[in-house]
Amino acid sequence: MRKRKNQQLAEDLAAAAARGYAELAEAELFSPAEYLPDETEPLSYAGYSYWRSSLRIFAKNKISMFFTALIALTLLFTFAQPFLPNQKDPIKIYNDETGIQIRNAVPSSDFIFGTNAIGQDLWSRTWSGTRTSLFIGFVVAVVEALIGVLIGVLWGYMRKLDFLFTELYNMFDNIPQTLVLILISYVLHPSLRTIIIALCLTGWLTTARYVRNQVIVIRDRDYNLASRCLGTPARRIILHNLLPYLVSIITMRMAMAIPYAISNEVFVTYIGLGLPLQIPSLGNLIVSGIDKMMDPNLRYQLIFPTAVLSVVTISFYVIGNAFADASDPKNHVV
């Protein structure tokens, strides 16, 4: 920090007095000081930064840090797995020396998670399925955020659109989400694209409403009024004045959208409309695992994919919530 001139002078004088020039220092002390207009303002107001504070509060939360580490490791491993040595093909059916499929082999050093009913390697299928599910989750989260924020901001900021958008929202929101999912999956060909479209069609509604409510809270603040007085066009007000205040809720909504999309994929697959079996996903792994649930020896086929699913969804959920708390400026005092 820059040392102030008068502060320096004060220290010199105090030092002089301490060295025993008491009388000399006293006459000096009671003489007028120099008035320095530049020093009338305190040096700096508490160095507060919104993002630094948010991250600091987030880092303080031990549970969320644990899940952040866990999900980081899981993600890293999921994507690194195919490049590790001695990995098996998730699609290939393995036969033993006699040419018979290795069906329902319990976990061993050869097949770490065992094999399934037709002799495929569950270890590589689980990680391949996690990749598929995460891919669905991320794509859906990004699309939802894009559509949701766009609609939400227009809905909240443009007063004239409020009535129209509210009615549209009421209409769409009253159609059960499961119905839309089932219908779309039924009409279109079962594929990765189909399931992503089906999930995107319903998810943005909640994001749009969140964003709209937040925009209504901040749109009439004085600084937005000031921008209007300066003739700032709506586009710039939205980009410069509103969006920076929405980043925290958008990030939170995205973190929440990932586990929702993944669980919805599992659900759609469970009712038989999900991805075809040749594309491994957590959904169809769990569904085929459920068939073996009643046999204690084969239960591992359900347990492994479910465990990975739980780790992924719970982590994103906890992180999303912790981030929402941390990014609320009200919590930035401690």
Binding site: R4, N6, Q7, L9, A10, L13, A14, E28, L29, F30, S31, P32, A33, Y35, L36, E39, T40, P42, L43, S44, Y45, A46
Partner: peptide
């Protein structure tokens, strides 16, 4: 002043054109 840093003398001294040197000490 910003109360984070300790205040040595009279807190008003920097804004006072007639401050004495002792006000800073």
């Amino acid at each position: 002043p910003n109360l984070k840093d300790p205040i040595a003398g009279d807190a008003f001294a920097p804004r006072n054109p007639q401050a004495l040197k002792i006000d800073f000490v």
